[in-house]
Simulated scan of single mutants.
Amino acid sequence: MATNKELLNSNKAPEPVGLYPHARRVGTLLFLSGVGPRERGSKTIPGVELDEQGNILSYDIEAQCHSVFRNVRAILEDAGSSWDSLVDVTVFLTNMKDDFATYNRLYAEYFADNQPCRTTVEVNKLPTPIAIELKCIAMID
């Protein structure tokens, strides 16, 4: 059984919204916590317009997809892994009906050379006003 357990945080990805690391290394596997499209150091979410109470008025799923993929890449690289080392991706969408086609097209572009296993599910809501979140597992040396 692997005894190498290390908590890892990226200084490029958005700060966690709770008590959890960006990633945890166990042996040769790297488990990422849920990663959304927020920007580091702010509450800004690319492509999201909020009202005064913080409710979503409108959002751009394409902008959120690009941002969440950037955040995942930053965490992987800061942890000593890489995009090509991803082996499993779970995707949470808040609006499968309207957003799946755009997300699926962008996913195919980002993962053209590496095709990890993938599960995509619709959820009612995510902890922050975002439309997409990824949960990933990667190999690490």
Rank of each mutant, 00 (worst) to 15 (best):
I132P: 01
M1I: 15
L93P: 01
M139Q: 07
L86N: 08
V89G: 07
K43E: 03
T94W: 06
L86S: 05
H66T: 06
R70F: 08
L106V: 00
S58H: 09
E122C: 12
L106P: 01
P129A: 03
G41Y: 00
K135I: 14
G41A: 01
I61S: 06
G41M: 01
L93C: 04
V91N: 04
I132N: 02
I75P: 04
L93M: 09
A74I: 08
G47C: 13
T90P: 13
V91R: 05
D141E: 03
T3M: 14
V89A: 09
Q115M: 10
G34A: 15
G34M: 11
M96H: 12
I137S: 09
N71V: 11
T119Q: 14
R24W: 11
C65K: 04
G36Q: 06
P116E: 12
F69S: 05
F31I: 10
E62I: 15
S33M: 02
I140E: 00
N4P: 09
N11D: 13
A112E: 11
D98C: 14
Y59F: 15
L8H: 07
W83C: 05
A108I: 03
W83N: 05
G47K: 03
E52Q: 13
N71M: 14
G41T: 00
S42G: 00
A63C: 11
C136Y: 10
P46N: 04
K43S: 08
Y59P: 11
D84I: 09
